[in-house]
Design a binder for these strands. Structure first.
Lengths: 170, 170
DNA sequence: TTGAATGCAAAGGATTTGCAGAGGC
DNA sequence: GCCTCTGCAAATCCTTTGCATTCAA
């Protein structure tokens, strides 16, 4: 049900502001309020660099009844704001929306293991070049792209399976 | 709500059997039955080369009450069989499952216009090579990949907008 | 005849929305 | 105090499932 991340994260990009500072700017520019819930979700999201969906985020936040609880609708609303603010990127994997850090991390793509559901990040300058060439051929103005290569990761091929999951997306 | 296709389809690949023949083989090999509904859906799907979702297919089939009607659950079930049989490929766009011809057409990727929701197909040998190189670096066994480049198409940039739609996926 | 396929209605799962009360600014 | 935000419950959207009936082989 959840999404795994591999252990070789990308090198962070240098940024002037913390995600918190950047989000504050975003809020102020739109007359939106700096609420306890937004702060809680933002801190949770940027605590570690990985991929996650709404459910995983909810599990990491205080559960219902406890102090600091954030409701499911608010989590969804807030994630949308983070995407808007350029803090997160969102994509769809196996029917669920998956989020990853955008602010502070370079553009990249993914290898997706359909056995253990692990996402492995990679950067390729050649891919960007290829993408822009194809687009130019079609007089197409690129906004972004998403490449997912699916198959079986090294660990799973070698039998070192960490988790077994129902899968099959793309 | 629907998916548009551009007017420059890929060159078909030479194949020994018609989709119908190939599907019959598939059915027989699994002791499945050649029903009127399956024939109707298959004919409808291969009538023209484009991208479509379940709703669009239902619109193209005889509507409820008329002869030749196929129910929504059967359409979904049948599309799944076509994917299984290697006749169609399925991907997710903006929350809906979109299908395209696989049998008889070469592997390709898409430019997606977020203004008019048009999908433009393209082939790139270089992309396959790049994909396999990246995978090799990670000892990753490739099964397939999906690249969607989103942005604005030529027509929309020039103001020749055909349809206006709510969008934003990737 | 006999098991597979269909249509109906209803369930499912992820995400979104209306609204009344809570709370930033 | 005003207006945004939140949590709740319920709605939505797309897709799948249970089941009695129909039908291909």
């Amino acid at each position: 049900m959840s999404v795994q991340s591999d252990s070789t994260p990308l090198k962070p990009v240098k940024v002037a502001l913390t995600p918190q500072e950047r989000f504050n700017d975003y809020l102020q520019s739109r007359r939106m309020r700096n609420t306890e819930q937004r702060r809680a979700v933002l801190d949770c999201v940027f605590k570690h660099h990985d991929h996650f969906d709404a459910d995983q985020l909810l599990e990491r936040l205080p559960s219902k009844g406890k102090s600091g609880y954030v409701s499911r609708p608010t989590v969804y609303r807030t994630l949308g704001e983070f995407v808007d603010a350029g803090l997160l990127r969102k994509f769809v994997l196996d029917g669920r929306s998956v989020y990853e850090h955008d602010y502070g991390y370079p553009q990249h793509d993914h290898l997706y293991c359909s056995k253990c559901e692990k996402l492995i990040e990679f950067q390729s300058e050649a891919l960007i070049k290829l993408r822009d060439e194809v687009a130019a051929t079609h007089q197409f103005q690129v906004r972004t792209h998403r490449l997912i290569i699916s198959g079986v990761c090294e660990d799973c091929r070698k039998g070192r399976v960490r988790v077994r999951r129902k899968v099959d997306l793309i």
